[in-house]
Amino acid sequence: MAKPIAGPEIERLIQLLAKLPGLGPRSARRATLHLVKRKEQLLGPLAQAMTQALERVLVCSVCGNIDTRDPCTVCCDPARDQTLVVVVEDVSDLWALERAKALNAAYHVLGGVLSPLDGVGPDDLTIRQLVERVAGGTVREVIIAVNATVEGQTTAHYLTDQLAEFDVRITRLAHGVPVGGELDYLDEGTLSAAMRARTAF
Rank of each mutant, 00 (worst) to 15 (best):
R169E: 12
L97A: 03
L17G: 03
E9C: 12
D93L: 04
A102H: 07
G152K: 04
Q162Y: 01
P71M: 08
A105K: 07
I144P: 04
V150M: 10
R169F: 11
L159N: 05
F201L: 15
V109Q: 02
E11V: 04
A100H: 01
V62F: 07
G136V: 02
N147V: 08
T199M: 14
G44W: 11
G176D: 10
A145M: 01
F201T: 10
A197N: 15
D90M: 10
M50V: 14
D187R: 05
L16R: 14
G7C: 02
R169Y: 09
L94A: 08
C75A: 06
V168Q: 02
C76T: 12
V134S: 00
V36T: 09
D67I: 02
S61Q: 12
V57G: 02
L130N: 01
D118W: 08
L186G: 07
A47T: 10
T149K: 02
N65G: 07
L46F: 12
V57T: 12
T171P: 04
V86A: 12
M195Q: 06
G7A: 13
L117F: 10
T160G: 10
A135N: 10
M1I: 11
L103Y: 11
Q82L: 14
D118A: 14
T51G: 13
A100R: 03
R133D: 00
P122C: 09
K101F: 04
V109P: 01
T160E: 15
T171G: 00
L173Q: 00
M50E: 09
D93S: 05
H34L: 07
A174H: 01
N104G: 13
P4K: 04
I5G: 15
L186Q: 09
M195Y: 05
T51S: 13
V113G: 00
V150Y: 05
R30P: 02
Q82C: 10
V88R: 05
A79I: 11
V74M: 10
L130P: 08
Y158C: 04
K3Q: 14
L16H: 11
A79N: 14
V87W: 03
C60I: 08
R196E: 15
A96N: 01
A6F: 09
V179N: 11
P178E: 05
T149P: 07
E151K: 11
G137F: 03
R56Q: 15
V36H: 04
V59F: 03
T32C: 15
T154R: 13
V177G: 00
T51N: 15
T154H: 09
K37N: 15
Y107N: 01
V86F: 06
E11S: 05
R169N: 09
L191T: 05
I14R: 02
I144E: 04
R30C: 04
A193K: 13
K101T: 11
P8T: 06
A197C: 07
L173C: 04
A53I: 08
E89W: 03
V168L: 02
Q52A: 13
T138R: 14
D123G: 13
L58Q: 15
E89H: 06
V62P: 01
P45E: 06
I14S: 01
A164V: 08
G152S: 00
